[in-house]
């Protein structure tokens, strides 16, 4: 079960993800999160509590980050677990989103 929590601080937002990121998160990401985060200057996605991302979840994450970037929001993904990062690397997600998107 996926859930998220947004903490806002003036023009910045921190969104903490928890659970598996997969096709069941489609409405949450596309209908809730993208509109909720558009408008901030920067967004940090805390990824440490995400243990599994399947291919659909990967597509959703790309959609989220790219949609926000298209709206001029700086996006950073923080604390990706080692096993999840292994899959990100295999799919060259850091190359696609920019290495600087991934922090500590």
């Amino acid at each position: 079960m996926f859930s998220y929590e947004i903490e806002q601080e003036s023009e910045r937002a921190k969104v903490t993800f928890e659970g598996d990121l997969d096709i069941d998160c489609t409405e949450t990401i596309e209908d809730e999160l993208i509109p909720a985060l558009t408008g901030y200057k920067s967004v940090i996605i805390e990824f440490g509590a995400v243990e599994f991302v399947d291919s659909s979840g990967m597509g959703l994450l790309l959609n989220l980050v790219q949609s926000l970037k298209d709206e001029g929001v700086s996006v950073y993904i923080r604390r990706v677990r080692e096993e999840v990062m292994e899959v990100f690397d295999l799919l060259q997600i850091p190359e696609i989103l920019g290495r600087h998107t991934f922090v500590g």
Partner: peptide, 10 residues
């Protein structure tokens, strides 16, 4: 179309 922006296959 919506939802297919990041459609891919390995």
């Amino acid at each position: 179309g919506r939802g297919y922006k990041n459609f891919f296959c390995t």
